[in-house]
Simulated assay, not measured.
Amino acid sequence: MSKVILVTGSNTGIGFDLVRVLAEKGHIVYLSARNEAAGKEAQANLKTDGLNVKFVRMDVTDHDSITSAKDVIEEAEGKLDVLVNNAAIGIEERPAADISMDALRRLFDTNFFGLVQVTTTFIPLLRASKEGVITNVSSELGSNGSQAQNHRGSPVYSASKAAVNSYTIALAHELKKDGIKANAVTPGYTATRLTKFQGTQTIREGTEVVLRWVLLDKDGPTGQFGIREELCQW
């Protein structure tokens, strides 16, 4: 059955590849980007490959653009089956004991506050779906358990993803009564622009991890932190 799916921050990287794969499977997919020209260029590239993908401009740090995107999808589709919160940024960081407050605020604005703002705006459309799904693209760096056992760098990025994980747990509990599933997933260390094209796996490999948590059926899991072949520690 075809689903209506929105992927935020999807003009490049895993988000773009996820849009491609979902469109190939016949779903109604909305590609979004904060830069309209970049988003439409990504849409055009997919259309050249014969894929009918829709574009909606959305900056996750701009409430008006989020509301406008919600209105566009509501008017065209009347519902949203899956929200993939993929938009995120990474910043070159100082050690935890000497964090730049400007970097902290900028990163949290996108990676956490923006994600919350998008989610709360689209919950009414997810409630209109019979099988609503929220998939928050997180990172193993946001796992407190993992970090305690094997600490790695990026303290600000890690903190933002830890906040996403905590928020996901709350969403899963609160929205269960509405039949909406909420999960976080880490695609793994993938070679994308976010990682300066370093990584231990390809974009498609990262996409395949996220995909399993996007196309859940009505009996699928909720309140989980997914990783490649298992569940990760919160």
Rank of each mutant, 00 (worst) to 15 (best):
M1V: 15
V4G: 00
S10D: 05
S10P: 01
T12F: 02
I14F: 13
G15L: 04
V19G: 05
L22V: 06
G26Q: 07
I28D: 15
V29R: 11
L31W: 13
N35A: 07
N35T: 07
G39V: 09
E41W: 03
A42N: 00
A44N: 08
N45P: 01
L46R: 06
D49L: 14
V53Q: 02
F55P: 00
F55H: 03
R57W: 10
M58R: 03
D59Q: 03
T61I: 04
D62I: 09
D64I: 04
K70V: 10
D71T: 06
I73Y: 01
E77C: 03
E77P: 12
D81S: 05
D81F: 11
L83K: 14
N86R: 09
E92G: 15
E93C: 11
E93Y: 08
R94A: 15
A97K: 14
D98E: 15
I99W: 12
S100H: 05
M101F: 15
A103F: 14
L104Y: 15
R106P: 10
R106T: 14
L107M: 10
L107A: 07
N111C: 12
F112H: 11
F112T: 08
V116S: 13
V118L: 01
V118G: 02
T120S: 02
F122Y: 10
I123T: 06
R127F: 02
V133E: 04
T135Y: 09
T135K: 09
N136Y: 10
N136V: 04
S138T: 04
G145T: 00
S146E: 08
Q147G: 02
A148S: 09
A148N: 03
Q149F: 06
N150H: 12
G153T: 15
S154N: 13
P155R: 06
P155E: 01
V156W: 03
A159D: 12
S160T: 10
A162I: 03
A163I: 12
V164D: 06
V164I: 15
N165T: 06
A170P: 00
A170S: 09
L171C: 10
A172T: 00
E174I: 11
E174A: 14
K176T: 05
D178F: 08
D178S: 00
I180Q: 04
K181S: 00
A182C: 08
V185C: 04
V185S: 05
T186G: 12
T186F: 13
G188V: 03
G188S: 01
T190P: 07
T190N: 09
A191L: 01
R193V: 14
R193S: 15
K196S: 12
F197Y: 15
T200Y: 12
T200M: 03
Q201A: 01
Q201W: 04
T202F: 05
R204W: 04
R204M: 11
E205D: 08
V214S: 07
D217I: 06
G220D: 02
P221C: 15
F225S: 07
E229K: 07
L231Q: 09
C232P: 07
Q233I: 12
